[in-house]
Design a protein around this nucleic acid. Structure first.
Lengths: 337, 337
DNA sequence: TTGAAAGCGCTAACAG
DNA sequence: CTGTTAGCGCTTTCAA
């Protein structure tokens, strides 16, 4: 194993000079720098991570805590994880993967051991048990998601309130009056993750302004559950012509069921989905949708975190503005009966 | 920050004693051990990861390299990643997430810096450019997937050859004679990942033994591509009654297209899928399938790696035996015309 | 069964 | 602009 000292000797300079060439923390003459860099290349030197962490009190590692649960739409998680990793690398950080399994203990372990310099938490609940720990430490952290209280915390999330509003606005503009919202599985609401509720609040409040009627039904994914849900919706509101779906595993069942009932999309009913673009594009009808900006969320989280690590910027909440893409699943409301 | 020295002082013992209590590498009297453990708890001591890594030359970190690409079925990747992380924790290891983006450089960086003690590579290609590096280092590694040559390497994968055979056997037993295989997108074959070819080889060879005819068509996912593919299949082999699908994004389009053509599943045609259980269960027809054992693959990979780190066990190839679950998409072949 | 002490490889004062 | 040096917190001989 090649050490810094060996590089120094090979280049005919002191260890500290090599160190400073590497860190750029003090100016080095061009010739010295070149000799050192040359030696580094020739010897194939890689700084030892442990030694560096010990001496500098910095591991250059960001911990990322992903949910263990698999009932949320996984590709989004993965996309965020990859975006975080990629973004972190551009700032010189590596990413340590933690599962939610260990819960608060993982936070204690990582902060206590100096394994990571900072952490990003996904799948945050309204009253998340990890939050007190985060507030009580000086280790920077960023949440992806919004807990009940954000004081003393930095959060990044899609603006789900605006998302709901955007969906209903689009339907209103097309002349729809009766809108049904097909939501996440009841378990998601019970877990108090908040985003589903925020969507609904935003949607309802804008619907009120615009004079639309809204019916909301949570829904397990799958074809059977959807049949039941849809029957209840049309039973209660026969005049429903607009749908907002926020549940990836309900998207295809909804389209199938509508087809079976002889309701054409978008001629008879319009459907707006809140889902990753990939799902919207690959569905049997290309869906008008608001995308979950996974990449952007991951990137933002890292940017905020790095800012904190560099002593710039403090706590705040970044809500990403939703964007609605019109595709083939929405159209003018059919003429009234 | 609490250090080992402080714990030692608090417990009235030497630093080395505390260290040995932690590592268990030499026997400690019960009373001493208890005093030390008590102090550790009282002070809330966590060993410093960097110092430990420096002194012991072990980071207790396993690097996991995931593909950056998103055209493979992502949930499987995620499930493997989570399985790896969970399994690693039970052995005292944390997991560092690397994306394929950096390619061989990441391998160099991680092995060179001692950031990780070992690594797991996913999405291995037949002629993977990272393999020479792995062979040339003494750092243990495990591949998930099978390259062209496995000498000097440890690999874990589903036995795709047996998987193909199993699918065609199932169809043969039900009396089907003409089988169509709907494969991955052409890009997957071109990338030379091997698993698709291995499936096909196993399937074809068993089909030959059993006297079945096989027609193979790669297929981009999606409804339009499937319409074309299916038309060509029935054009060429009108008597096709059995399907094997190995492409998650083709599953639902296939079922939809068959429905549209008035072919009932499983009365007129049978469908066997090679896909995660979740996909098989959530499809519009519950699919008879061979599952991708993501959890098992992740767990196996970690077990192998830990064995190598502990000096037990060497290089070998672990092929996980496929299991076929019969659901609602396969049945007896219809009587001949 | 325990202690003392020498590093592990690097960073960051401090000194020139 | 560069060198000297004192640790960072832990593991592990060596010695008792």
């Amino acid at each position: 194993m090649v050490t810094l000292a060996e590089v120094a000797q090979h280049a005919g300079v002191s260890a500290s000079t090599v160190s400073y060439v590497l860190s750029g923390k003090r100016s080095i003459s061009a010739t010295t720098r070149q000799r050192v860099e040359q030696s580094i290349r020739e010897l194939g030197y890689h700084p030892n991570a442990g030694a560096r962490a010990l001496a500098s009190n910095r591991s250059n590692i960001i911990a990322l805590m992903v949910p263990l649960r698999t009932d949320m739409y996984v590709p989004v998680m993965m996309e965020i994880a990859i975006a975080v990793t990629t973004a972190a690398r551009t700032h010189g950080y590596d990413v340590l993967l933690l599962t939610g399994e260990e819960g608060p203990d993982a936070v204690r372990r990582v902060t206590g051991s100096g394994l990571a310099d900072a952490m990003i938490l996904m799948d945050v609940e309204l009253q998340d048990e990890r939050l007190p720990l985060l507030r009580g430490t000086d280790q920077p952290s960023v949440l992806i998601g919004l807990p009940a209280s954000t004081t003393g915390l930095t959060c990044v999330d899609l603006d789900f309130g605006a998302t709901g509003a955007l969906c209903v606005e689009h339907l209103a503009k097309l002349g729809h009056h009766d809108v049904a919202v097909i939501g996440e599985a009841p378990a998601v609401y019970e877990r108090h993750t908040g985003f589903a509720e925020r969507t609904l609040d935003g949607l309802r409040s804008r619907a009120r302004d615009l004079g639309l009627r809204v019916l909301h039904r949570p829904c397990e994914g799958g074809y059977d559950a959807m049949a039941v849900t849809l029957a209840r919706i049309f039973d209660e509101r026969p005049g429903t012509t607009g749908f907002v779906v926020q549940n990836e595993s309900a998207v295809e069942p909804l389209l199938a069921q509508l087809r079976r009932q002889g309701r054409a999309v978008p001629e008879d009913v319009s459907v707006v989905a809140i889902c990753p673009d990939q799902v919207a594009v690959q569905a049997s009808v290309r869906l008008t949708s608001v995308a979950i900006p996974a990449q952007e969320m991951g990137r933002h989280a890292v940017e905020r975190l790095v800012a904190k690590l560099d002593g710039r910027g403090g706590d705040d909440v970044v809500l990403i503005a939703p964007e609605l893409t019109v595709r083939a699943s929405t159209g003018p409301a059919p003429a009234g009966p």
